[in-house]
Design a binder for these strands. Structure first.
Lengths: 196, 196
DNA sequence: CGTCGAATTGATGTCATTCAACTACAGTGG
DNA sequence: CCACTGTAGTTGAATGACATCAATTCGACG
């Protein structure tokens, strides 16, 4: 029976099951415990991680020692340091499990072979990249102008499921504000919603 | 004799001159006067613009009427609303000429045909996307933590040439601060540099 | 020379940070 | 089972960074 990764990929990318068989040597599934770090700054990112179960995050630590969360990844999401992997550079970030998780490791080989098998896989890959760009651009727009409250509202709209699984201070970090500020924003929102 | 676009592309993408000939029907060069708007919110972006000469910018206007500059593009840069073009959505931004410019219009057809001719062109295209992602991510990191001063220092490091060509209030908009704040940041930097 | 937008400067306001104290709660080891 | 410890979250007061508003200067260009 197919793994969640297999099902996901054959559905989304048009990769056929027989084709997938050829790629299995390039794929490993792995259990990672909460708190486990899969990538550290300075390392070259060798894998894309596909989350079958659980929750990961990527983040940087700046000169002042502050964390900035780049991305969360729940079930059926990919997470990696694309730039590090693609350009073979030292990564700037951490990838860490927030919950006990099941993760598929996808290496460069997989991508090359899959792309060779199948033009629809290449198209799928481009769609992923384009989607990523759109997402980053939206986030930039928010950061360039929106107040903490607007950013938070946008977040809960986009990721309602994450609200329940991610500690509040991480959400604050993702939004670029302090946990204290987020706490106050939430308080204020609660107050407003009661008056309506 | 080859156009700047042609030279650039053959050099960077490995597209051959003969191959380029086949694509000429999909390419138009165009002079655009300073202030001319090439894309408006609501339109679907039909072209990527390659700047042969001059300077363009892309920006959004938020609910409060404030501009947020997404990108500048000088000679040998591309600018477009990728997401709008790729996903066939209404664009959210303006693309406008800051100087009198010469621009190459590249339509969807061009990309498909060029990709069909040549795998090295596809690779080039992927490199562009990956590069774009890296760039956006760096900017997010700056916006998530760095002060106005750090952001400005980063900007002049990355785009020293733009400093001379772009009005200051646009740089402020790119950095996500007001023109007044940028003026003060610059004053403060000047003061510091004299004392050393 | 006069006009208009860009840039600077000052006074004041606002939003978010910082630092500190306190509560709530989960996990650990006795 | 309970005390102990550490982490998350909340709240308050003081501070800081940047915004806003208004006035002035600067500079390009007709």
């Amino acid at each position: 029976m197919p793994s969640p990764f297999q099902s996901y990929l054959t559905e989304k990318s048009g990769l056929k099951l027989e084709e997938f068989e050829l790629l299995t040597p390039s794929v490993k599934t792995m259990a990672v415990a909460k708190g486990k770090i899969l990538l550290k700054p300075g390392e070259v990112c060798q894998h894309s991680f596909f989350v079958e179960k659980g929750l990961l995050r990527s983040y940087t630590i700046d000169e002042g020692g502050k964390e900035h969360i780049i991305q969360f990844a729940t079930e059926e999401w990919f997470i990696s340091d694309r730039s590090s992997a693609y350009f073979n550079e030292a990564s700037e970030f951490y990838i860490e499990a927030i919950e006990d998780s099941e993760v598929v490791l996808i290496n460069h080989d997989f991508m090359v072979k899959a792309g060779g098998l199948n033009t629809s896989f290449r198209e799928y890959n481009e769609r992923l990249l384009q989607n990523h760009i759109r997402h980053l651009r939206k986030r930039i727009n928010l950061l360039l102008g929106a107040t903490a409250e607007k950013r938070y509202l946008d977040f809960i709209q986009l990721y309602p499921d994450l609200l329940l699984r991610v500690p509040q201070w991480m959400i604050a970090s993702y939004l670029g504000i302090t946990p204290e500020s987020l706490s106050r924003v939430r308080k204020e929102l609660a107050r407003k919603n009661f008056r309506n």
